[in-house]
Design a protein around this nucleic acid. Structure first.
Length: 788
RNA sequence: GCGCCAGUGGCGGAAUGGUAGACGCGCUGGUCUUAGGAACCAGUGGGCAACCGUGGGGGUUCGAGUCCCUCCUGGCGCACCA
């Protein structure tokens, strides 16, 4: 029975050269793909290029070239490098996201998303990267800095395109439970990112006004302890209550705080009414209220929230305790019994929340509410080298999303990248058009799509990269999800969450039957290498170092070099190893072996000269082994080979590739130690086939030498009878401690074996003069004798 | 601060609750070789031994690296998320 297997490694950004991290990634995938092909599965194993993006623009300026030329040239180079690795890839499926043939279908998808209400435009405070001069998605801002430039991100109010990922927040969260073959870690990260909290929305009436302030809380049970309201500086009520100058001053003050955890607030000239107590409570602008979460406003309950407590202390606001428990500390934010709250007294947290929500509902001042931290995905980028958004704007400010017949909107080639901002803005003869539908003057959208849009559906396009529509539904239903998706953990949120959203959105638009894009996710570890520095703190490349009189020195200058810790390979620290050189010196097979041998594929792998050398030695050893003349072999040999087939198969399927290498060593250690040479026997054939996924070159060459055949196919079936080894070494324990082992066969009779065991010296000595009170016999596993 | 993961020889790492340290690296001794970053053989957790050993302490069990509690250490993620 054959089944489809879609095996995919995250496609690379064509930066110019592949690095060792790529090699490890693709070798892992290649082993899987080759194995499944041998099993007779219908395997898809494509490769392509994540080809849009800012580095191309920067490189174009730096090297006085064009992003497209630079990118296409890099693709050519990297493809050659990959081909040198002899990966079993479906090159006929190759695609590059910067090809018109790819992005025109992305523009179609954009139109579909728009028509489905999942793409929309709005004015929004967005993250602005001043160095790259573009907007960033929330996911691309790390610690307030741009993910690529490290520049402090500014807030800008811009009209931007968004994808409505929030529509899928609940499903993106709940479906994580169905992803049984994803690392828990990644699922946890996505879960936190989506950030679901269950609580209540409460309306606080603004006194002397018809307006209300909405706040979200997970602790409505502490409502009686609310003594103030705090809003973010960007909350709409601030604009209504203060003039711009004042607001700017407050913003400045907030920015000048040294410790950003320090609480600071400014009272607003308005007050709210407590929704239950009807008393007047003050409203502050506070620096610790996030405008991006909930309603951008909170009620402060100082007795039961650390931040509110700090704030109340600083501004001498009342602190009312409404939760009682054994822990007398203030503030206390745990569970307890409600006090000082006439309508809730005596209830526990859970009941109090239910009860107060009932009351809110009755009084029409609040409701239960589920809040998600995730916000819609901003996809506009003010960059040239990306997929044009198929929209035009009229002079009156209205816009129209193009029809599919009007596609593609082709990215113009002639461009000047040396100016400030988005180069597309300056290409007038591209930008300005006469709208064919209205005959009015119109201007093209000059923002391009975030490159994460490109990578959100490339795995779908791979199924049929030449089709004259984005994809074929029947094929998608049949071939997706990707069975094994292999890549770095750095994409845990961004790419993987966006892709999950895309799959679900496309499912709903096109009635697809696929809920999730990636059935199994495997995150491979990075490759590290020792770092080297001269006394002058200059990094030195490992290949420029020699050992001279027990001293590490730089070859050219003879300077002393100090060895530092092993760190992720990076150009800046010069601790990189170039794949091309390794391939040349050690060959493909040794490189593959080393990529998987020293540590489990999901952990980091330290590059060592000894490691790559011993991998090469193994390849030679196997080659030499098969050149020996055929010897006799016996049933035991057959059993060992059978076990090898079984173990290596299991380990490939589990991604325990380091154990595959151990399996290979174990087999050849046994064969050579016993001088059993299998040459061109049927056992050899089986071994060679099983070696093929890991050592394709070697297996092919041995196969053609011994069997005069170019073909390796059909993974051997396992003979269960041979696999079952009836001879066992039975561990014998006394008081649960190992005393000896006893050679016997499976299915022994307990009574018989005990008679023999009691005669063993080691056992006899320990039980003499003692009473045997219990015998535990786990059949075929262990015998434990308990004495008194 | 919160959450998750992990701590096993000199090192990387193996062990469905059932012989801890598979396999590799390194190291020690030896063989062969003009030589070797080659190959081969033997050994390699600690201790002379009885025994002791999976970060520390406690527990469950006939039996714990594995399960539970607790503490320590390290890594990763999130971080004023109301």
């Amino acid at each position: 029975m054959t089944s489809k297997k879609y095996i995919l490694e995250m496609f690379p950004y064509p930066s110019g050269n592949i690095h060792m991290g790529h090699v490890r990634n693709y070798v892992i995938g290649d082993i899987c793909a080759r194995y499944h092909k041998l099993k007779g599965d219908e395997v898809i194993h494509p490769m392509g290029w994540d080809a849009f993006g800012l580095p191309a623009e920067n490189a174009a300026i730096q090297f006085n070239t064009h992003p497209k030329d630079w990118t296409l040239n890099n693709i050519k180079n990297m493809k050659e490098q990959l081909q040198k690795l002899d990966l079993d890839l479906d090159w006929e499926r190759e695609l590059a996201t910067c090809d018109e043939d790819y992005y025109k279908y992305q523009q179609e998808l954009f139109i579909d998303l728009y028509r489905a209400g999942l793409a929309y435009k709005k004015d929004a405070l967005v993250n602005w990267d001043p160095v790259d001069q573009t907007v960033l998605a929330n996911e691309q801002v790390i610690d307030g800095k741009g993910w690529r430039t490290g520049a402090i991100v500014e807030k800008k109010n811009l009209s931007q395109w968004f994808f409505k990922i929030t529509n899928y927040a609940e499903e993106l969260l709940s479906d994580l439970d169905n992803l049984k073959l994803w690392p828990e870690k990644v699922k946890t990260m996505q879960k936190n990112w989506i950030g679901k909290s269950i609580g209540a929305e409460i309306k606080f009436k603004i006194l002397d006004s018809d307006d209300y302030l909405n706040i979200f809380t997970t602790r409505p049970d502490t409502i009686y302890g609310a003594t103030f309201i705090a809003v973010s500086i960007n909350h709409p009520i601030v604009n209504k209550s203060l003039n711009q100058e004042k607001i700017d001053n407050i913003k400045k003050e907030f920015e000048e705080i040294n410790d950003d955890k320090d609480k600071m607030g400014v009272p607003l000239p308005i007050h709210c009414e407590h929704p239950i107590l009807k008393k007047k409570i003050p409203v502050f602008i506070a620096n610790f209220v996030l405008d991006t979460y909930g309603e951008g406003a909170i009620f402060g309950c100082p007795a039961h929230d650390d931040r509110d407590y700090e704030f109340a202390k600083k501004y001498s606001l009342p602190i009312i305790k409404v939760i009682e428990c054994d822990d007398k500390s203030i503030p206390y934010s745990g569970d307890g019994i409600v006090i000082n709250s006439p309508l809730l007294n005596g209830l526990n947290k859970e009941d109090a929340i239910k009860e107060i929500i009932k009351i809110f509902k009755k009084n029409k001042v609040g409701n239960e509410k589920i809040n998600y931290k995730i916000r819609d995905w901003g996809v506009s980028r003010q960059r040239y080298w990306g997929c044009p958004i198929p929209v035009i704007y009229y002079e009156d400010g209205t816009y129209r999303v193009l029809d599919k017949e009007e596609l593609p909107v082709v990215l113009p080639y002639d461009v000047n990248l040396k100016g400030k901002g988005n180069a597309l803005l300056n290409i007038d003869d591209w930008r300005k058009i006469v709208c064919p539908k209205t005959n009015k003057i119109a201007f093209r959208e000059t923002d391009t799509l975030d490159t994460f849009v490109d990578s959100s559906w490339y795995y779908i396009r791979f199924l049929d990269n030449k089709l004259e529509k984005p994809f074929d539904s029947e094929k998608v239903n049949r071939m997706l999800p990707v069975d094994k998706y292999i890549g770095g953990i750095e994409h845990a949120i961004l790419h993987l969450l966006y892709s999950r959203f895309f799959m679900k959105a496309l499912r709903d638009i096109y009635n697809l039957k696929v809920d999730e894009p990636f059935k199994q996710l495997f995150t491979q570890g990075m490759i590290t290498h020792k770092t080297y520095k001269t006394q002058n703190n200059e990094w030195v490349m490992p290949k420029d170092i020699v050992l001279n009189n027990n001293r590490l020195v730089k070859t050219k200058t003879n300077e002393t070099v100090e060895e530092g810790p092993s760190e992720k390979m990076s150009k800046s620290k010069k601790n990189v190893i170039e794949p091309d050189e390794i391939l040349e010196n050690y060959g493909i097979d040794a490189t593959r072996i080393f990529m998987i041998s020293d540590s489990p594929p999901d952990r980091e792998l330290e590059w060592t000269d000894e490691g790559i050398q011993s991998s090469k030695n193994l390849v030679h050893r196997i080659e030499k082994y098969f050149s020996q003349k055929l010897s006799t072999f016996n049933l035991e040999t057959e059993k060992k080979v059978e076990k090898f087939i079984h173990d290596i198969e299991k380990n490939i399927l589990d991604f325990s590739l380091n154990k595959c290498v151990a399996d290979i060593y174990t087999l050849f250690n046994y064969l050579e130690k016993n001088k059993i040479y299998l040459n061109n026997s049927t056992l050899s054939k089986k071994i060679i086939i099983c070696l093929f996924p890991v050592l394709p070159r070697l297996s092919l060459s041995i196969n053609s030498l011994l069997f005069n055949s170019e073909i390796l196919n059909k993974w051997p079936n396992i003979d269960l009878e041979l696999l079952a080894d009836n001879n066992i070494k039975l561990p014998i324990q006394i008081q649960g401690k190992l005393v000896t082992t006893f050679d016997t066969t499976k299915g022994y009779k307990k009574e018989d074996i005990l008679k023999s065991i009691y005669k063993l010296d080691k056992v006899k000595n320990k039980i003499v003069n003692k009473e045997i009170i219990r015998i535990i016999n786990v059949q075929d596993k262990i015998i434990n004798i308990i004495v008194k």
